[in-house]
């Protein structure tokens, strides 16, 4: 049984239907990615899972319990943690206070202290700057802080929204390596939304392609990387053919 099971959810922004019946699974311990262009609805899916937005239809099951429509704090308590797009750290709190806020719903002081050390181990930069205001960190450091903060609630499932946004390629590599390490060491399952398709497909085991609120393709990441359409439209691999010149004429297979 998958850890997270989403079936046919529909989510609206006011009158606009942003998610038009999406179903996906996240197996325990795995990394799953959702690819898609701007405005495809990736962020909305994550927000719907973490309870910030409520789906109009459909079901979300986590650990066999249905969680759609629950308040966000209940969902955090059940073990889902969200690293929001654009980092959203508490700028005027110190690094340490930010991390402690991640553990807001926990009351085991000794273990929280232990987890703080674990985070400083994963992100040594944060360990050097515990008393510094989060707003004064660089973009990459803020991203690390946002990930560390989300991990402080000891989630079973981590939702990552564009972790590479605005980062240099080297920093991006570094962040993705840490994500991989956390996944293998802590056994945290992950659902990653990414625009950098190559990164995401290398990291994840299973991938979904989202277009305009619908899942148009799903497969293991290995297969997806071989897929002609993915290659052309998401990985930017150019094939030697006339097709390249008449790219606008070609229809994707799934349309």
């Amino acid at each position: 049984m998958p850890l997270l099971k989403i079936r046919n959810i529909e989510t609206y922004y006011g009158p606009i239907m942003a998610i038009k019946g999406v179903s996906l699974d996240v197996e325990e311990g795995s990394i799953v990615t959702i690819l898609g262009a701007n405005g495809a609805g990736k962020t909305t899916i994550l927000k719907t899972i973490s309870g910030v937005m409520d789906p109009e239809k459909g079901s979300i099951e986590f650990l066999g319990q249905s969680i759609e429509g629950l308040a966000p704090d209940k969902i955090v308590r059940m073990g889902i943690s969200h690293v929001p797009e654009g980092r959203e750290v508490f700028e005027e709190l110190t690094v340490k206070e930010n991390l402690i806020m991640g553990a807001y719903l926990r009351n085991d002081r000794a273990e929280i202290r232990q987890d703080l050390k674990t985070m400083y181990n994963y992100f040594p930069v944060l360990g050097e700057r515990t008393a510094q205001q989060a707003g004064s960190l660089s973009g990459g450091e803020q991203q690390m802080l946002a990930i560390g903060r989300a991990l402080m609630s000891r989630p079973k499932l981590l939702l990552l929204d564009e972790p590479s946004l605005g980062l240099s390629p080297i920093l991006m590599q570094e962040i993705f390596q840490i994500i991989k390490r956390i996944n293998s060491e802590q056994k945290t399952s992950m659902l990653i939304v990414e625009q950098n398709a190559l990164m995401a497909l290398t990291l994840a085991q299973h991938g979904y392609v989202l277009e305009l609120g619908r899942i148009v393709l799903e497969d293991s990441c290995k297969e997806l990387m071989e897929n002609e359409d993915i290659k052309e439209f998401y990985l930017g691999v150019k094939e030697e053919s006339i097709r390249g010149t008449k790219r606008w004429k070609r229809k994707k297979k799934w349309r």
């Binding site: 973490s50 910030v52 966000p72 704090d73 969902i75 955090v76 308590r77 943690s81 969200h82 929001p84 959203e88 750290v89 508490f90 700028e91 005027e92 709190l93 806020m101 991640g102 807001y104 719903l105 903060r149 989300a150 609630s153």
Partner: peptide
Amino acid sequence: QNQLAAVYMGI
């Protein structure tokens, strides 16, 4: 400072 992030923390 950041209401949305606070919600994500379960506050």
